[in-house]
Amino acid sequence: MIVYIAIVVMFFVGIYGMIVKKNIIKMIIGVNIIGYALNLFFIVIGYRNGGIAPILVPGMTIEEFVSKAVNPLPQALVLTSIVIDLSIICFLASLSIRIYEKYGSFDLEKIRRLKG
C-alpha cells in the first residue's frame, strides 16, 4: 500500500513541477518524474511478495513457475514506456536549447508571446 502512496506523491510532485514552475528545465524534470511514477506503477502492478524473476529455468514445472514468478507483462510494457518517455524528454530538451537561442532565457514569463 505504501508503494502506491509513494507513486501518487511522486506523480503530484511531477504535476507540481510541470504546472507551477516557470522554468522550462524544471518543467522537463517534472515530465521526467511523472514518467518515473508511471513506470513504477506498472512494475508494482506485476509485483508479488517474494516472487522470482519470470524466467523458466530447467527443472521447474509450469505450475511452480505460475505460482511463484512475478507478472512479466508489465515489465515488458515498462520497457516501451521508458523509450517513449526518453524520446519526449530528448525532444523537449532540444526544444529548450532552441528556445534559449531565440530568447536568451528559460523563463516562461519572458517567453510567453502567444495568447492561447
Binding site: 515530465v31 525532444f91 523537449l92 526544444l95 528556445i99 531565440k102
Partner: peptide
C-alpha cells in the same frame, strides 16, 4: 524553428504528454 513555433510546440508537447 521560428520563435512562436517553438513556443507552440512546447505548449502542445506538455499538454499532449
Amino acid at each position: 524553428l521560428k520563435t512562436e513555433e517553438l513556443e507552440a510546440s512546447l505548449k502542445y508537447t506538455m499538454l499532449g504528454f
